[in-house]
């Protein structure tokens, strides 16, 4: 592309002004459901959608010392596509079909060599006249979660969407091999949306505790709601009967904030009990449960003491953690 901007700081500056969504695709139905939502969220001209497939690097020991690349090179010799490419292409077809005719998109590809892999990192960027871009990225990394987080460092994103991995929740399992989604949600510096049986159209449930961060979350969530045009409800949980009035005032505060931003919440209520259980129960009727990150850093976030992470771990539907 002739007018491509090459200066890294300039690129970063341009990227800051755009709404960038990173969608992690692994070929599963769930990840495509997340992508469909991303397409809706990123329909505006100022949004970019980046599709990412992370392939773990080869592990020679597992294959008795013969590198998997020998097999992969052999596949390439036969003219066969490596896994991941097909998944990304399917994702692209979904996006471009839902937006405009493919002819309007300008195509550009880039390649970075990665040691120990015949393909390395590959990127195809589609850009239309108004500067909106869709990027397909095939990345190689030692672990899937690590690859997704590395990708964040390459360009800031506003939101990471990924499908949940099956069978998480138990302590033993997470100690053994923390699920990818969980790991990304803990470490990512931006908002993370974990799609789980995602069915759009049921609106979002914002959970507030009246704190500044929660209000910040409500503000950001209202921006998202403007983008995807979904309904918004507000809830707060009181731990016991005495704190019900606090919870009610939190809800009122959030409602007022939403109204000031031009969004009328379709519902606002409080519940009493264990926050995690109540949120999961009430959230089941909505497309998303939206939570603010509790703002704990380092150690605290690492041990995931917050309600947000517990909800993320145990909820049955999609969860969005806003940062």
């Amino acid at each position: 592309m002739a007018d491509a901007v090459t200066d890294p700081t300039e690129i970063a500056e341009i990227r800051k002004s755009r709404f960038r969504i990173l969608v992690c695709v692994d070929g599963s139905e769930e990840s495509y459901r997340g992508l469909r939502y991303a397409a809706r969220l990123g329909a505006g001209e100022d949004a970019d959608i980046i599709l990412l497939y992370v392939r773990p690097t080869d592990q020679g020991l597992r294959t008795g010392g013969l590198q998997v690349r020998v097999a992969r090179e052999n596949m390439l010799n036969w003219g066969l596509e490596l896994p991941g490419i097909t998944y990304l292409k399917k994702g692209r077809d979904m996006l471009i079909e839902t937006e405009e005719q493919a002819a309007l998109w300008d195509q550009q590809s880039a390649h970075t060599d990665v040691d120990g892999d015949p393909l390395g990192d590959n990127k195809i960027e589609y850009r239309n006249e108004s500067g909106k871009s869709i990027v397909l990225k095939l990345k190689t990394a030692s672990s899937v979660a690590g690859g997704i987080l590395d990708q964040y460092d390459l360009g800031p994103y506003n939101l990471i969407i990924l499908g949940s991995t099956e069978g998480q929740g138990s302590f033993v399992k997470s100690f053994w091999d923390p699920a990818v989604a969980e790991k990304v949600a803990v470490h990512a510096p931006c908002s993370v949306c974990i799609s789980r049986d995602l069915e759009t159209g049921h609106g979002k449930l914002l959970c507030t505790d009246g704190s500044e961060r929660a209000l910040d979350m409500v503000a950001k969530a209202s921006d998202l709601a403007k983008r995807d045009g979904s309904k918004v409800s507000v809830m707060s949980v009181a731990i016991d009967d005495e704190s019900q009035s606090d919870a009610q005032s939190s809800v009122d505060q959030a409602t007022a904030l939403l109204q000031s931003r031009g969004i009328i919440p379709s519902d606002a209520f409080i519940k009493t009990g264990n926050p995690v259980e109540e949120i999961i129960k009430a959230g089941a009727d909505y497309s998303f449960i939206v939570l603010g990150d509790t703002g704990k850093t380092g150690l605290k976030r690492f041990f995931m003491g917050s309600v947000a992470f517990k909800v993320m771990e145990y909820a049955r539907n999609s969860v969005m953690v806003i940062r």
Binding site: G60, L61, T63, G65, L66, Q67, R69, V70, G116
Partner: peptide, 10 residues
């Protein structure tokens, strides 16, 4: 590039 020499060591 096709042989993982570390495996031999292992």
């Amino acid at each position: 590039s096709g042989v993982n020499w570390g495996v031999v060591l292992l």
